[in-house]
Design a protein around this nucleic acid. Structure first.
Lengths: 239, 239
DNA sequence: CTTTTGTTCATTGTCGACAATCATTCCGGT
DNA sequence: ACCGGAATGATTGTCGACAATGAACAAAAG
């Protein structure tokens, strides 16, 4: 047994670090959807070789945050309304699966982790910023997915959740009613905590579908002409 | 509108070509699970630079067919029984979703494509080889997924289906009863062709879960000690 | 003999330079 | 003015060399 509470100083390889930096920039909205990414410029900004940023970009392609057009360039992924529908549908399906599995195998420690995440959400809903609320929301969902005990499910969920974040942060969706958020998540976690597998599955699907439908409705309402990333604004804030 | 069934002569970039070659070798079983892959040797065999094979390997990592151990090496993915369970569960969920969506929006052309794929399966079941049967089976399922109209669902499904292929081909699972295969798939496609969404979802989940359970049972029966890729046999046939 | 430490070697990580490709621009012809 | 095609510039694709790292082995201490 190692020394308690002493994590190894994880040294990321350069390309991983670069990928992390780019990922943050994209998910925070600093890099707009559809923005062009050139290897040379990134290499200069990051003080590293082009091959290294190339590796980083390929990682992000695998995550669905960047698209590669051969011999032409790399773009920050631009999501159409069709894409948001696809992502919402997929997310609902995966969360429903996770909820069912989680309810089947939840134990004392699992309950604690869920309740802890739920408390964080409550706190954020009362006095936190919008960003904190979004973070707590995603944190709770991630906790539920982890509860399923299915590592691959978690991986695929992360991929999708990250892409969902793409348009959540970019469009700064405001939550109408803070207390509603808490209520909804209480309904979501209750059957899981009770070990009610089918109830959890139903609740999770309803929860995800509703939030997905709301996002799609919000984007439709905006009626922005960026059906396919036509806007392609440049970088909002420099790296 | 282009000429029917005439795809442009896609010249893959070198790293894509290398990735394709490696993918084939892995999925065909020529490269055993857990086999070590060294950049230098592959570069020599493929007559290309190390950086290029590196890019190819990274693609395969994203597909879940290869694992990367930093500063240490690349391995062909080795799946434990836990992994097969995870993959089966995920696949079942995605196929159920696809079946429901497909049943909701099927049209005349969709019906034709499904029936065509089903015919191929029937033919393969009667007079084809085992490989052909597996290919037709996967083809039918892929057709159903495409029917959902959800591109991302297709992408995630492909990732999982490829990993499933990893242990299907490696363990050469033999089908006991050819006619059973056809029967089962008839039950699967019938509600979809009828536009029965909930029936399709139920049938698809049942179909996938059963096949997954059978595979897990088969692997358990084999009781091979490769719980975590400990076997790590070398390359069976040279590239 | 076991455990720890030092060393060597194979392999990955990173880099800068050159080649292939694509998008644009410019020019001549009509 | 309009259109086609060649030149041009920018960007990605590919390569070989050097540095950093980890794993296996050997040596020394207990």
């Amino acid at each position: 047994m190692g020394i308690e509470g002493l994590a190894p100083p994880q040294k990321l390889s350069l390309d991983r670090a670069a990928a992390a930096s780019l990922r943050d920039a994209i998910l925070s909205g600093a890099l707009a959807q559809g923005a062009r990414l050139t290897e040379t410029r990134l290499a200069a900004q990051f003080n590293m070789s082009r091959g290294t940023v190339r590796a980083a970009l390929q990682r992000l392609v695998a995550e669905g945050l960047v698209t590669q057009r051969p011999y032409s360039g790399w773009d920050v992924a631009a999501l159409s309304i069709q894409d948001t529908w696809e992502l919402s549908t997929l997310r609902a399906s995966l969360e429903a699966l996770a909820a069912r599995l989680g309810a089947e195998r939840i134990d004392a420690e699992g309950r604690r982790s869920v309740e802890r995440a739920f408390d964080e959400l409550r706190i954020a809903a009362e006095g936190g910023s919008a960003d904190e609320l979004v973070a707590a929301d995603m944190g709770l969902h991630r906790t539920l997915v982890a509860l399923s005990g299915n590592r691959r499910l978690g991986e695929h969920y992360d991929l999708i959740a990250n892409q969902v974040r793409l348009y959540i942060t970019s469009s700064t969706i405001v939550v109408k009613n803070m207390s509603t958020v808490v209520e909804r998540h209480r309904d979501l976690i209750e059957p899981i905590l009770n070990g009610d597998a089918v109830g959890a599955e139903v609740a999770a699907k309803a929860h995800s579908m509703r939030s997905g439908a709301e996002i799609v409705a919000f984007l439709r309402e905006q009626d922005r002409p960026s059906k396919n990333g036509v806007t392609a604004q440049e970088v909002r804030t420099p790296l």
